[in-house]
């Protein structure tokens, strides 16, 4: 009873803070917490007319259907690879760019190069996908224009499953390398200049300087960002895949999120799509959790 009074008196004391937080509290309840029990739809036969908690129970029917579906392994493979390749190529390039751009002597030229490099990050995925589709178009794209001018045979890039991963990865690196380099550039700028002076007295050249001084100083940053990136390995973005793929390239392009969209929103198979989505969130949650545990441990290590 005393405790209850304590809470009540604290609530009265903090009434204005509670009042301020109230609208955002409602927002989180409605758009995040209310949908959570909706995941139970994965275990139900759900018709579009039903309420969020309606429908009849069917147990694991949808999960079974998904695991036995011919698309299961394809979706898993594509979801993994379309995160893995951009990571493989997209992770080292910002580090390399940061190493090089910080060597530019004129501050103005350096700032201009950096400004240019972040630009694609702020362009919408629709415009990026639109540029890709049009540059690679069979009839009037510049890439095929160059190929035919050089005497080669035109390639139907967007309709060929062999090209999808390359296109997706290369454009992803183009979009984000500059933005992702910002944090490394800041870290390099923060390295104690005395380390370099000492190196110079010892007569190291610039290559040795990069390898023996700069990279070791960047190691903690690299390590933590790598772990965080690994945590996102199953959460490949929906938009760019959706904008770039088509029926002809599903073989290499279709990922879990686009499959959930087609099954759920387009075909209204709510139960099945929710089951597929739930499977994906459970696995990604486990990966993110593991990555966070690892990064916490890595953090302690680097502090030590």
């Amino acid at each position: 009873m005393a405790k209850k009074n304590g809470l009540l008196s604290m609530a009265i004391r903090d009434r204005y803070l509670l009042l301020l937080f109230l609208p955002v509290f409602a927002y989180y309840v409605i758009f995040f917490y209310l949908p959570m029990p909706g995941m139970l739809i994965a275990f139900k036969d759900y018709l579009p007319g039903n309420g969020l908690f309606g429908g009849t129970w069917v147990g694991l029917k949808w999960f079974k259907a998904f695991f036995e579906s011919q698309f299961f392994w394809r979706l898993l493979r594509n979801t993994f690879l379309l995160a893995f390749y951009p990571l493989l190529f997209g992770f080292p390039i910002p580090i390399l760019f940061a190493l090089c751009v910080t060597e530019i002597r004129s501050p103005k030229a350096r700032a201009a190069a950096q400004t240019a490099s972040y630009l694609p990050y702020f362009i919408s995925s629709v415009v990026v996908a639109g540029m890709i589709v049009n540059f690679l178009s069979l009839s009037d794209g510049i890439v095929n224009g160059i190929i035919s001018r050089l005497g080669g045979r035109k390639v139907n890039f967007m309709m060929d499953p062999k090209w999808f991963r390359t296109i997706f990865t290369a454009s992803g690196v183009w979009q984000s390398f500059g933005f992702n380099s910002i944090i490394y550039i800041a870290a390099i700028m923060g390295i104690d200049p005395e380390l370099y002076d000492a190196g110079r007295i010892d007569g190291v050249n610039k290559f040795q300087e990069a390898r023996r001084i700069t990279l070791p100083c960047l190691k903690p940053t690299i390590f933590i960002l790598l772990i965080l990136a690994l945590g996102g390995i199953l959460s490949v973005g929906f938009e760019k895949v959706y904008l770039l793929y088509n029926g002809a390239t599903y073989e290499t392009a279709d990922v879990i999120s686009t499959y959930v969209y087609r099954q759920g929103i387009e075909s209204q198979n709510f139960g099945y799509a929710t089951a597929v989505g739930l499977f994906n969130s459970v696995i990604s949650f486990a990966i993110v959790y593991a990555a966070n545990r690892l990064s916490r441990r890595a953090n302690d290590m680097s502090l030590w």
């Binding site: 409605i30 758009f31 995040f32 209310l34 949908p35 959570m36 029990p37 909706g38 995941m39 739809i41 969020l52 999120s257 959930v260 969209y261 759920g264 929103i265 709510f270 799509a273 929710t274 989505g277 739930l278 994906n280 969130s281 949650f285 993110v288 959790y289």
Partner: peptide, 12 residues
């Protein structure tokens, strides 16, 4: 870290 997923969000 955790969300109800696309379909429940869409229904809500």
């Amino acid at each position: 870290y955790f969300s109800g997923g696309l379909i429940p969000f869409y229904i809500v």
